[in-house]
Design a protein around this nucleic acid. Structure first.
Lengths: 227, 227
DNA sequence: TTCGCTAAATTTGCATTCATAATTACTTTT
DNA sequence: AAAAGTAATTATGAATGCAAATTTAGCGAA
């Protein structure tokens, strides 16, 4: 039962503008020219403006009345706040997953976990990351809470463009692996409280503030919106 | 520093359509006629359609391609899921508030709490509810996490139209009051873990599934979206 | 009567056009 | 030359118009 995906022009445009933001082609704080984007995508202003409204509601851009759209500037605080939230949501997903997960879902996650451990042994970082992502997504899916999933993916979208240095240290990696061992144990024991705790802490580790400082432009006041 | 509030037609329309949904004037699952709403508000289709896009992004309505907009049907499961999420967010707000709250904010909440207890003694339900809401909002504000606040108010919007019977029983009320006593204690002790726990459990109590069953129409499949 | 097909009417999606606000460029004044 | 005020330009906000899809109504056959 896959979600019905609507292919409207405005949705298409919103996705593509989102990509531009993610890949930094639209700079943070930069004023988004409607005309320019219209020409780029070959659409009229109507669907483009609808797309901008949606992106604003999703938190990727902000709309200043009569003054156009701007890409939201990600400050360190904003990223930190978003990660705090995502950690809480991951925690909840773990708790719910423990209560609701089916045996087939569980064994699928176990298989993913074992595969991932193999990748760790081989030091195959790319494969490890992929399996890792799949595990977290599977737990989220097993939580069987659509609102939660929707909100998580929205938050994830917002910080997607932050690409902190991916040079995982050995120590860091070992720690993450240890987390995952504890995770699968808690999940198989249906220890919801414990899995929740692990997942909350686990995500916090992912956000290394030190590396972050260099990536995000400035942490000054978001905008001098008032005249 | 109040948020700059944009007064665009589309935002105005979105708010008013939101009100219509909240007050049940637009029935769940009902097809929303663009023309009808345009005439009602005296605006053209452009801002109305933009408003619908935003409302869809906010989760109040859903847009079917070429088939118009529908008010999202709230099933018992969806409401339950939303409350689970809100509970997690309230918990997080408590944890963060403990870490970040200032003394002046704290004493303001203490004052609110004491006032609320007075209303409880007098059995002034309306005043009690108002103070209660203010306390929760204050904690949320003290958490100093804008993303969290935004998400919480969005979720709260979604379930606003669910008005379960407000006949608070004595026992129930006493329990809530007890929760609040524990809350203010934990907050003053800056016991973040404990306050988080209390807030998570507290909200769960608010959602009485028994009373809910009668209010929400049906809990059948959300929609037969596929042909 | 019920089912299926076809055509009219309605509704949605998008482009274009008009009005208004903001920005830029230019002129004038000190 | 710098600052300030004004006109020209550009961008945004909203309304209208047109094409395509969907829904509704009407008709005929089983």
């Amino acid at each position: 039962m896959t979600k019905i995906l609507q292919r409207n022009l405005y949705r298409e445009v919103a996705d593509r503008v989102g990509d531009l933001i993610e890949h930094g082609e639209l700079a943070p704080g930069e004023r988004i020219s409607e005309k320019q984007l219209c020409e780029r995508f070959g659409v009229s202003r109507t669907p483009l403006r609808e797309a901008l409204k949606v992106l604003a509601a999703e938190g990727l851009i902000e709309l200043l009345p009569n003054r156009g759209a701007r890409v939201v500037k990600l400050t360190v605080k904003k990223i930190k706040d978003t990660y705090d939230l995502m950690a809480a949501l991951e925690g909840l997903s773990g708790e719910l997953a423990c209560q609701r997960i089916s045996d087939t879902e569980l064994s699928a996650i176990r298989a993913l976990h074992d595969r991932m451990m193999g990748y760790y042994q081989e030091r195959d970082l790319a494969a490890y990351f992929k399996a890792n992502r799949q595990i977290h997504e599977s737990i989220l899916a097993a939580s069987d809470n659509e609102v939660l999933q929707e909100m998580y993916s929205n938050l994830s979208q917002r910080v997607k463009r932050v690409r902190y240095s991916k040079k995982m240290t050995e120590k860091f990696w070992a720690h993450a692996v240890k987390d995952h061992e504890a995770m699968i144990t808690a999940l198989e024991q249906r220890d919801s409280h414990r899995l929740g705790q692990i997942l909350r802490d686990h995500l916090c580790n992912k956000l290394d503030l030190a590396t972050l400082e260099g990536v995000v432009a400035f942490d000054d006041e978001p905008e001098a919106a008032n005249s």
